Amino acid sequence: MSIFLHILWNNVLPLSVMIAAGIILQRAFSLDIKTLSKLNFYLFSPALMFRLLYETPISLDIFGTVMLFALIFMLLQYGAVEIVIRLKGYDGGMRGAMRNSVLFYNSANYGIPLNQLAFAGNPYTLSIQVLIMMLQSLIPNTYGIYSVNAHKADWRAIRRVILSMPIIYVIPLAFVMRWLEVPVPEFIYTPINYTADAFIGTALITLGVQLGSMSWRISGRLAYDVGLSALLRLVGGPVIAWGLTLILGIDGLTAAALIVSSAVPTSLSSVLLAVEFDNEKEFASQAVFVSTLASIITVTFVIFLLNIQI
C-alpha cells in the first residue's frame, strides 16, 4: 500500500493536476495547440535533453549495455505492435499512431521522477534512465515523424522535417561537450536551465489542451484501440524487458532500472507528433491519458514484483 500511495501522490497526481489545468485553459480560452507543440519540439525538449546529458555521469560500460538492450527492446516491441496492426487491419495514419503509442513511452516527466523514487535517488540508475530518455527523445523526432507522415508525404519532405528538429543536434553536442569538459558560459546555461524546467509543465498542459479540445464521446472502436495500446505499452513493455534482461544476462540494479523504465505510460511525444502533423489526434491523446491512469496500478505492480525498496 505504501508503494501505491507513493507513486500515486508523487507521480500520477501531479501529472493529472497539470493535465487538468490544460483542459480548463482550453475550455476557457481556446489555446493554439500548434504553437504549444512547436514550443515543446523546438525549445523545451532540446533544452532538457542537453542539460541531462551534460550533467549526468555515464560510463562507457553502462552506455553499451543500455544501447544494446534498448535497440533489441525496440525491435521486439515493434514486432508485437505490428502483429496487432496486421490483425486489426489498420491503415493510413492509424498504423503510425498505434506504433507511436506503444514504442514511445514517457521516459522523461514520468520516468525520471519514478526512477528517483523507486531507487532513492541512486545516480547509477539515474544514468540508465537518462540514456533511455535520450533514445526516447531521438527516435520520436526521427522515426516518429516518418511514421506519422509516411502515408501522405514523400521522403524528401519528411527528411527536411526531421533535419529541422533540434534534438538530433543537441544530443551529440551535449556528449562532446561533456567528454571534452567544455564549460557552458553562465549567461547561456542559465537560460538553458529556465527552458529545461519549463518542459514538463508545458508538455502536460499541451496534452490537457488537446484533451480539452476534443469530444469526450468515445466510439466503441476507438475505446478498443486505446485499450490495445495501453495493454501493449503497460503490460507488454515490462514483460518484454524482463525476458530480454534474462536473455542478455543483465541483473541487479541494471535489470531493475531497465524494467522500470519500460513500464511507464505512453509518451507525450505521440500527442505532440499527432498534433504537429495532424494525424489521429484524438486516438493519440486518449492513449496517453488512459495509459497514464492505468499506470497507477501497473507500475506499482512492476515495482512490487521487482522487490524494490522505496
Rank of each mutant, 00 (worst) to 15 (best):
M74G: 09
H6K: 15
F187L: 14
I128F: 04
P46T: 07
G121L: 07
I296M: 10
M49E: 02
Y224D: 11
S269F: 10
S215L: 08
A157S: 14
G92S: 13
L39H: 00
G208D: 08
A274F: 10
F69T: 03
W179M: 14
D225M: 13
L173A: 15
L5G: 02
F44W: 06
V209D: 04
A28N: 12
A153G: 01
L234N: 04
A223N: 12
M94N: 09
I167S: 01
K88R: 15
S2R: 13
S229W: 03
F44Y: 10
A108H: 10
L126P: 05
G92P: 01
A287G: 11
L163M: 11
M165W: 09
M165A: 05
L228K: 08
E55L: 12
A294R: 00
I158H: 04
L25A: 09
V12G: 00
G236R: 01
R51S: 11
I83T: 15
D61K: 08
I83Y: 07
V290G: 03
E282R: 15
G111W: 14
I19C: 02
E280A: 02
K88V: 06
A70S: 05
Y42L: 07
P265C: 03
I303G: 03
Q129E: 14
F29K: 02
L228F: 12
G121Q: 12
Y143G: 03
Q77G: 15
P172M: 01
V235I: 13
Y42I: 12
G144M: 05
M74R: 09
A294H: 05
V84N: 02
P185A: 09
P46G: 08
I250T: 03
L15N: 06
L36I: 06
S30H: 14
N149D: 11
S45A: 11
D197N: 09
G212L: 00
Q129Y: 09
N106I: 03
Q286N: 12
F175A: 11
D91M: 08
Y224H: 14
I297H: 06
G236S: 01
T300R: 06
A287S: 15
S213K: 15
